[in-house]
Each structure stands twice: as C-alpha cells, then as structure tokens.
Simulated scan of single mutants.
Amino acid sequence: MLAEGSNPGGGKPSSPICSGGPSSVTGIGVQKAGKIFMGALLMKTSSWNHPAARKATLATAKNTYGSAECNAVKAAWNAIGVPAQSGETDCGGTTTPDFSLALNPASGSVQPGASVTSTVNTSTTGGSAQTVQLSASGAPSGVTVSFSPSSVTSGGSSTMTVQVGTGAATGTYPITVTGTGSATHTVTYQLTVGKDTPPPTGCDNSEHTYQGSLASGRTAVQPDGSYYYSAAPGTHVGCLRGPAGTDFDLYLQKWNGYGWTDVAVGGTASADEDLTYNGTAGYYRYVVHAYSGSGAYTLGLSNP
C-alpha cells in the first residue's frame, strides 16, 4: 500500500481500503518504502506488534525524508485499519484535517422489544484532533438509534444503542452511521431483527448437546461457559451446527497448566463443523466463534 498506493495503475489491481480509512492512498515508491521499513525494523523490540510498527515507520519516515512521506505512511496504516497510537510522531507540514470512523461490532441481531449496542471508534488521520458529530440514517420503522456521547473528539469513542420496538418488522436492515467534522465519513451497521428460531439440528448422536446464540464476531465457551474433565485418554468428538449462510468456527481447547491452548479445530468455512481429537486425560472446553453472521447454534460433544 505504501509503495504503490491504493490504485497503482499499469494493469495492477487496486488495493481495498478498510472501512473508515482514507478515500485513497498515494504510493511513494518501493525504494523509499523499503528504506522506511528497514529503518523501522532497527527499532524492533520483543513486544513488537502492528501498533509498534506504525509508530516506528512514522518516526523513520519523518527523520529520513520529511512530512510528506511521513503522512503517506500514516495514510497507509489508516487504510489497513491500524489506527493512530498514543505518542506517535507528528508528521508536521501542512496536513488536511481528517479522521476515520469504524464500528465494533459492525452487525448485530436482536429480537423485537430489545436493544443491541456497538462502539463507534474514531481516530485522527490528518491534522489535529477535531470534533466529530455522530448521526444515523436508514433505520426501519420502530427502530431508534442513539449515541452516547453524540459527539466525540477524534481519537475517542461513543456507544451506539439500537433500540428495537415490539412492533418492528423482521428483516435485515443496513443502518448508515455518519461522522461529520471537517470531512464526512460513513460506515454501515447491519441490523437483523428476527423472531426466536429454534437452534439447528444435526448433532443427535452426541452424548451431550448445548444451545446458544451469537452475534457476528462474538465467542462462547461450552459447556455452559465452563469446562469438563476427562479422566481417561480417548477420543473427543465435537459437532457444531450453526445458522444457514453463516461461518461459525469450532475449537477444542485443553488446559496445559498455564492457560487454554487449541488442540483441535473444525475444518470448514461454513455454519457446520465437526472435529475429532485423540487426547490424554485432562481438562477440556469448546469455543464457538461466530466468524461471519449471527444466530442460534447447537453444539454436540462426546468425550472419553
């Protein structure tokens, strides 16, 4: 992204930009990008991660080249969803004031008469911090959207509450969240309003079954938020059946004396996953993760 930009041309494909990022990124060339990357690696520590890499590359770009290249590095990080970090360098120079907008989670499922929340995150992507006014549009009849607070200083966050009335119609609705400051940015929240539906079937041969419901991006631990003890070695069998059209993931974890570690993972990118693990005696638990989509699931498990 930094070397070529988001639209390199010359027959090369465009690079996608994460929701809430800049509209485009202008590349600075592979030689400059390489020198900035190498300079940042010289600052690497044992706690190195993406936010630390952002700070290091910004400092290297400013010290090696100047404000233009530093701001290009900043735009590239914002484009891939790594936001501004506390203590990062001010690139200096003349920078157009701007900000980014993101939702966590970006979708939710709720029954009529209930509510669901999401966090609206903002960050300063150009110039100094600014006030961002939040609003929403596209909510269906019977649904109200509120923000607390209704305006934030870029870099801050707000809680969005989506209240669904008892008479709201079932369905899936895109709600546009708008942030207005020196510029205007939007992100989309996918709201699903539905009646209670029974969990999927298909794990009837399991010794034990558990049901639950997950919103997209959320995780649940089974059995019942806890774990089970297997006193003898043998085969553990997990059976997950999720909502149609979703991608739910299944993990079997074992306690190693210090923490939980994955010992088996379901192998499909779909709503249904099965796993088998031949393990020793010990403490085990299953983790169900809604990678994409929301709804009710059934987990069946059999253990030695």
Rank of each mutant, 00 (worst) to 15 (best):
A264M: 05
T131P: 03
F147L: 10
V30D: 07
A139N: 13
A290F: 06
I175R: 08
A102L: 11
N49I: 01
E273M: 05
T153R: 02
Q130I: 09
K74T: 02
T57M: 15
K254R: 15
T122I: 07
L42A: 14
L103R: 03
P149W: 09
V73A: 06
Y65N: 02
T176S: 13
K74V: 01
G279M: 09
S86Q: 15
A215D: 14
A264D: 02
N7L: 09
Y297Q: 00
T122S: 14
G225T: 13
V25F: 04
Q133I: 09
L214E: 04
A232G: 08
F248P: 01
N49D: 15
A264E: 06
P112M: 08
D204N: 13
T131K: 11
C91W: 03
T125C: 05
G171Y: 11
T180N: 15
G5N: 07
G234N: 05
N303A: 12
T124N: 09
V116E: 01
I80R: 01
A72T: 07
V287R: 08
P149Q: 08
A220T: 15
P243A: 12
N78K: 00
P200A: 11
Y65L: 00
P149N: 10
S128L: 14
C91E: 11
S123L: 00
P200T: 10
G171C: 04
Y210D: 03
A271H: 02
G5W: 01
G225H: 10
A56F: 03
S294G: 09
G257M: 08
T45V: 08
G257W: 05
R241T: 08
D272G: 02
N104M: 12
T172C: 10
Y258V: 04
S154C: 06
T170E: 14
G259R: 11
S206Q: 12
V30W: 11
G225A: 07
Y284W: 09
P233N: 11
T246H: 08
Y228I: 00
L240T: 06
A290N: 05
S226F: 08
V152R: 00
T64Q: 15
K254P: 01
D204Q: 13
G279Q: 05
G225S: 10
T45E: 14
G66C: 07
L191T: 04
C18T: 07
V145N: 03
V237Y: 08
A84F: 02
N7C: 04
T197V: 11
P51E: 13
V30F: 12
W77T: 01
A220M: 14
E69P: 02
S67M: 05
S23I: 12
G126E: 05
S294E: 03
S6Q: 14
S6V: 10
L42V: 04
F37A: 10
G113T: 07
F37S: 02
P13R: 13
I80E: 06
S47K: 08
G202H: 11
G194D: 07
Q111R: 10
